[in-house]
Every structure is written in C-alpha cells, then in structure tokens.
C-alpha cells in the first residue's frame, strides 16, 4: 500500500467525513424539497393548489361586510369535474358556472354516484386555474376536506361553500375550479399521512 504518512491519512479521513455529512444533508434536502415545494405552491398558487391555512380562519361575517364595497366587480367561477383512472363514478357539478361578487359567500353542489358494485373510498383533489387565483379562492366547506365513502350505487349531492377574496388581481375575471376524484385504493394512498394535514385543517374549521 502506498498511501502516505499518518497526517495524510488523517486529512483524508477528515475530508471523507465532511463529504459524507454533505451527502447525508443533500439526501435529506431531496426529501425537504417536498414540503418546500408545497409551501412555494401555496404562496404562489403553483398548480392551482389551495391555500389550506386560509380555511376555517376565514371570517365569513367580515367578508359579508365587504360585499357592498365590491358590488361593482363580478367574477365568473366555472366548475368542472374529472375522475382519475377511469373511476366508475358519475361526477359532475350541478351548476357549470356562477357569477359572484368578491367577498360574497356562495354555495354550489356537486353530484356524485358510485356506479361500481363495491364500496369506494375516494378523495377529491381541487385545482384552480389560473394558478395565481388559487390563493384568493377560499373554501369554507368542501367535500374535498375528507375522503368520501360511497356504497355501491350510492349517490350524493355534495355542497361546496366558498368566497372569492376581494384581493383577487383585477385582470382575472374568470376562474375555473376543477375537482378530480381519485379512488384511494387505486392511487395506493392507504396510509394517508398527507391527507391528514388536510383533515387537520378541516377540523380547525369546526
């Protein structure tokens, strides 16, 4: 073996130790990208993700007082529904679009029916377009806060109460809210660690 003297061995070990620490840190950083990305998405409305923090803490009464001030502005909210992986459900908004005043609390309903012969637990995932409108779209009550269990053939009308924040940028006059229903079995999300954060927020709302 031709490696050098002791001091060289020591400095080799020092460098190796340091680099191994960097490796571990970067491995963790890879995972840390997940919460960082989520935070960024919420802050900037990437992918039309919802600003969950706003839910439940939104003061509907105070919002109602703003109604007057914003009467001169109208926003069209479109609704659409999708099913993931060909989930055999009928799923559609009962109204395809409504016109609202910013600050006004509105309720719309979605209709869903389980067409399969078995009980299905499904999770609705919301998305808003354009993305930067997401953080101004506040849900007060939503069937997407929890997983929904449907017996074979069961049909439900599911309410959604929301407020469009008056701070919505002026150039946005139409926004679209889309829900996608995922079969939690198919999506492989049996342990629902991340769903739970959504649930927690929903609990706060009560």
């Amino acid at each position: 073996m031709s490696t050098g003297n002791n001091s060289q061995l020591e400095s080799n070990q020092r460098v190796t130790r340091f680099l191994l620490v960097v490796v571990v840190v970067m491995f963790c950083f890879g995972f840390a990208l997940a919460p960082m990305y989520e935070a960024l998405c919420k802050a900037f409305g990437i992918n039309g993700r919802f600003v969950e923090i706003e839910q439940g803490v939104y003061d509907a009464d105070k919002a109602m007082q703003q109604v007057k001030a914003d009467r001169d502005r109208q926003v069209t909210v479109q609704f659409t529904a999708s099913r993931n992986q060909n989930l055999q459900w009928e799923f559609r908004p009962m109204e395809t679009s409504v016109v609202v005043y910013p600050g006004e609390v509105r309720e719309v309903k979605y209709y869903a029916k389980n067409l399969t012969g078995k009980t299905v637990v499904a999770q609705a995932v919301p998305s808003v377009s354009p993305g930067q409108a997401a953080k101004y779209f506040n849900k007060i009550e939503c069937f997407c806060f929890t997983q929904q269990t449907f017996k074979p053939g069961e049909a439900k009308e599911m309410p959604l109460r929301f407020v469009v924040d008056g701070k919505l940028p002026k150039k946005i006059s139409t926004l679209t809210l889309a829900y996608t229903f995922f079969d939690t079995d198919q999506a492989g999300t049996k342990s629902k660690a991340q769903v739970d954060t959504v649930l927690r927020v929903a609990h706060n709302a009560k």
């Binding site: 992918n47 039309g48 659409t80 993931n84 995932v125 998305s127 808003v128 377009s129 354009p130 679209t176 889309a178 996608t180 995922f182």
Partner: peptide, 8 residues
C-alpha cells in the same frame, strides 16, 4: 396534462 390538476 397532469392528473389531479388543471393547466390552462
């Protein structure tokens, strides 16, 4: 076209 999200 991304599952679960809409793009415009």
């Amino acid at each position: 076209a991304i599952p679960g999200f809409i793009n415009e």
